[in-house]
Amino acid sequence: MVRLITHNLLACHAKGCTSNNFPLQLKDVQLEQREAEFNPDFLRRFMPKLDWGALVDTARQLGDDSLPLEQPEMFDDDFLRKLHHVLLEVSVEEGAMVCPNCSHIYPISNGIPNMLLAENEIG
């Protein structure tokens, strides 16, 4: 599974690709919804580490606009449940991620992203 929490951490690492290499653009995706245990404590403390803009943009591209463009400073249970769903319950099973800078394609199959590069592509 590539849940959006993982997608929020992945960046292109092709040779020479060091700027504008995040977030990777999802393409031709097959999504699956998978229920996960709601843990507000984890979410509250994890939230500052997110790249919020990347998360919201990616979720919207997948047709989920439940999250606000600006990361709220105060948050209630309702908001945390929405964040939980976007971050941990939506997973990409098949598809690809494309680097916005160098267009390198990282395929996703069986929920596993292939981040390997050929030896000559490694920076």
């Binding site: 849940r3 690492h13 992203p113 981040m115």
Partner: peptide, 30 residues
């Protein structure tokens, strides 16, 4: 990795990435 996805007994509950320890496929300092 196909095994690691199910680690701990819950089917496909783990996040795994096919990658190399010499690759840097992560947002720095993430």
């Amino acid at each position: 990795l196909l095994i690691a996805q199910n680690a701990g007994g819950k089917e496909r509950s783990r996040e795994v990435v096919w990658g190399d320890v010499l690759g840097g496929c992560w947002r720095r300092g993430a």
